[in-house]
Structure formats: structure tokens, C-alpha cells
Design a protein around this nucleic acid. Structure first.
Lengths: 195, 195
DNA sequence: ACTATCGGATAGTGCTACTATCCGATAGTG
DNA sequence: CACTATCGGATAGTAGCACTATCCGATAGT
């Protein structure tokens, strides 16, 4: 906690006396947020710092705040190698066919392309139907994110949800997909008894 | 590379002479797979080792192989705290309402619950519609995974795709969701010029 | 006055994922 | 057949990250 303050993640508490500091409920919430970003979102301290300072910069335009969140997520813990050009083209093709507007340097393209490269390392060249299913799942999730955003009124509340939702949406999906997998395999290997 | 051999991720090459070793194309595929697991999948060396030794254990039952993959993904880089009981209940309710069969200790439940906790740390209590959207996205992805599996014939090929697909499906989705986000925000902030 | 506690600063720790160096032996070359 | 260059293998060292422990001076309470 003193460590987080040092790193600039957590503001100092309110001075009540020269050697006493009081922490409000807001601080507690902030700590929870930091831990969620670090543990659940898998961000590094540096990335989390970028995210929370974007949250606190209430005067920055929303689009900029969003970019910070996108960027924080693509700060990998281990260095990432370049995806193959064919995988990138594959992803771009699927995305274009869905009519999405995107810029060529969107790091999501590379991230998806790297996943495709990994799959082809075991000889699985993802068919269009597979990619389409994932793209459509991603579109549904993104649409849900947007709807959630539109229900908030204040600029700060929108910025917060935008940033945190960007980071925490992935683990939310990942967890649910794992449960869905278990359900699917229950049917596949009917050997184990259900629930 | 020698490091990977030391850690048991990569088998030794074929001896051609007492001090010469030849590497086949299989080795380079294996290296690609390892790097995909580590960099793209975000696994630790230890988790990747579990995964690849599960792949090589061709005689283990498929359900067991699958569990190894599930477990490897839930080996976090930073220690994870317990999710709140209410968030767990929330996830369980959504999952039950979809009629999924799952065991109470499925780590996906906790992962999703932690994400929910993080969201509520900024005052966002995910509405049912939001969770439903993510659950349905997860179901579609899981179904696509299953279909891909069913197109492979040999037991080894199925095990491989099961394990690697479990690990790499998340980053694939994550990348695509980020592109979808950019598309969505393009419409939201019509200030920047498209493409 | 006296001690106990607090905030703040500095230095140290444990872990992970590599990387560099050394060494003895063999492969290729004249 | 000698000589050097290279190779695999083993051991030790490194860099970065996320903390954690210790010290210190000052103030709060008795």
C-alpha cells in the first residue's frame, strides 16, 4: 500500500495531523480497483498507473482516455514477437468483411493474428467459420460494453467504465468461456456424472 | 532454446554424432508452439511445461488432457485474491439459467466473479443483460471450439487443438474485441476521420 | 518526561525468464 | 596427423518486476 502510493497509483490520504493520515472509503475503492487491474486484468504496475492517471485526468477527451486503456492492455509481460503477415491478412479480411471501421495499427489485429499463428503451429488453420464465430462473439461483447457505457451519464463515470470495462471484459469472457467448455465437454465425454 | 530443453519443454534433437544434433521441422513447430503459449497465451514456463507434457502423453484420456489446459490457464502470474461471494453467486445464477452443466469448483466461475468485483469497484454493477451478452458470446466461442475439434480425427490432433485452443482462444477473442471497440468508438466519437 | 506508534524514505528480497561464460570433445582443413 | 573452429552441455550470472523489511525522526498519548 505504501508501495502503491510511491508508484503513484494511490493518492496520499488526508492529513489529520502532521504524522496521521486518514483514508476515506474512496481510497478503499481505489485499492480494490488497483488490485482488480493487477490481478484480474493482468496489468503491470506501470500499465495500471497509466490507466488510473487517465481516470483522474477528467479533462482529457474520452477518445484519448479510451486509447490509454487499449494501450495498457497491449503492454505484455513477456515480449511479443511479430505475427505473420498471412495471419494479419486473415484477421483483416474477416474484420473488413464485417464492415468494421478500424485503423491498420490497431494492436488487436496483431494480437488476434498471433493467436492464429499459435493455432497453425499445431496444424490448425482456423476456418472462416471459426473466425467468424469469434468475431461475432467479440462484436456482441463490444456492443454490450457500449450499451453499458450509454447508461452512465457523467463524463467521469463513462471514462471509468470505458477503461475498466476494456481491461476486465477479457477475463470476464475468459471465465465464462471456461465454464462453457466444461459444459460442452460434459456432453462430449459422458463418462463423468453431471454436477 | 537450450533453456527450453533444460526446462523440459523441448525434446533433445536427434544425435547425428557425439557432438552434433539435428533438429527436424517438428522441433521448429514445437518452438513456435511454446512461444505462442508463452507470449500470446501468457502462460508461465511451468504452465507451458504442463501443457506440452499433456500433449505428449498420448495415452491419457482426453478429459484429463483438457483439465491440464484449463488448469494451466488459471495459474496466474500474480497471486489472485478470492472473489466476493455475491459475484460468484451472480455468475453461477447466469450460468445456471443458461442450463450449463458445470462443477462448483470450475475456476472460470471465480475468474468471472473477480472481473465482476473489479467492475463494481468503480460502481458498475453489471446488469443481467450485460452478463447475458458475455455469456452468450462465450457460448458461441465454445461451440466454435467444439466444432473445430470435431473436424479432427486422430486422438493426438484432438488433444492438441483442445489444449492450444483453450489457451489461445482468449487472446483471439481479446484482439477481436479490441478491433470491435475501435469500430464502436469510431461511431461514438465521429470526430476522427475513418481509416 | 517517556514510551509507543505513525508516516516516510531507503535498502533488500524472491521469483521468473532468460543470457553469458566456460569446458571438453569432436569435425573439418591443410 | 596436427590444428583450429565449432558444437553441445553445464554452471553461473543477469534484469526486471512486485513487493517487503528496516530504519528514522517526529508526534500522540499517558
Amino acid at each position: 500500500m505504501k508501495y502503491y502510493q510511491r508508484e503513484g497509483l494511490l493518492p496520499a490520504g488526508e492529513r489529520t495531523a502532521p504524522n496521521q493520515v486518514a483514508y476515506s472509503g474512496e481510497h478503499v475503492q481505489r485499492v480494490r480497483l488497483i488490485r482488480a487491474l493487477l490481478e484480474t486484468g493482468g496489468l503491470s504496475i506501470a500499465a495500471a498507473k497509466d490507466v488510473i492517471s487517465a481516470l483522474d485526468a477528467s479533462d482529457a477527451p474520452l477518445s484519448e482516455t479510451f486509447e490509454v486503456a487499449q494501450h495498457a492492455m497491449s503492454t505484455p509481460r513477456t515480449k511479443e514477437s511479430e505475427p505473420s503477415e498471412s495471419a494479419r491478412a486473415r484477421v483483416a479480411a474477416i474484420v473488413v468483411s464485417r464492415g468494421w471501421a478500424f485503423s491498420a495499427d490497431n494492436p488487436g489485429i496483431d494480437a488476434a493474428a498471433r493467436a492464429l499463428d499459435g493455432l497453425s503451429a499445431i496444424g490448425f488453420d482456423a476456418p472462416d467459420a471459426y473466425l467468424e464465430a469469434y468475431a461475432s462473439a467479440a462484436a456482441s461483447a463490444a456492443a454490450a460494453d457500449l450499451r453499458a457505457l450509454s447508461e452512465r451519464t457523467s463524463r467521469d463515470a463513462i471514462a471509468e467504465l470505458m477503461v475498466v470495462g476494456t481491461v476486465l471484459g477479457d477475463p470476464l469472457f475468459a471465465g465464462l468461456r471456461r465454464v462453457a467448455h466444461e459444459d460442452a465437454t460434459h456432453e462430449m465425454f459422458a463418462t463423468q456424472s453431471p454436477k
